[in-house]
Amino acid sequence: MKKLIKEFLKGIIKENPTFVLALGLCPTLAVSVSVRNGIGMGIAAGFVLLGSNVIIAMIKNIVPERIRIPCYIVVIATFVTIAELMLKAYSPVLNRALGIYVPLIVVNCIILGRAEAYASKNSVINSLFDALGMGLGFTLALILISGIREILGSGKLFGYTIMGGVEPALLFIMPSGALLVIGLLLGLFNLFKKDRA
């Protein structure tokens, strides 16, 4: 049990997919304009990661080595399709806001990365906790980035104005603002890791 909790927790800080592994940066850059989008993206990707990690851990012994990547992609694409249809049915607004980045979860490198690096070598239960941790780590990173960008770039949080009277810096809701915020957060993360080591 202790080991499972460790597998779960490592995705949040120690091996955070965004700030430590630097995976899945493209959706992070693109959708982190507002916290709502960030949470939606995090949950959608987390759901796909959970499903694909569990299934891939199950089939890892029957998939031939040479065609494993196409097989993984088929599994991932199935879950992405489920996620997209669910979003369209229950949250069309969010689906419109995320746009093309929902189908693009298929090529999100966190998901294929975990499938290749973890799920194809570990048991189903371990993969489940790995996926939960990584999904949560990704979501938290997205909330952090999109929170900073939404506050600085539009003066709002969750769509509610919190900085009345202050003119927000438009740069932060542009792509260059995303790169700036992610770069600075990566630097801060490394700083704290260096201090602890």
Binding site: E167, P168, A169, L170, L171, F172, M174, S176
Partner: peptide, 8 residues
């Protein structure tokens, strides 16, 4: 350029 993009 930062100011230009933020407060045109």
């Amino acid at each position: 350029v930062f100011l230009m993009a933020s407060w045109p």
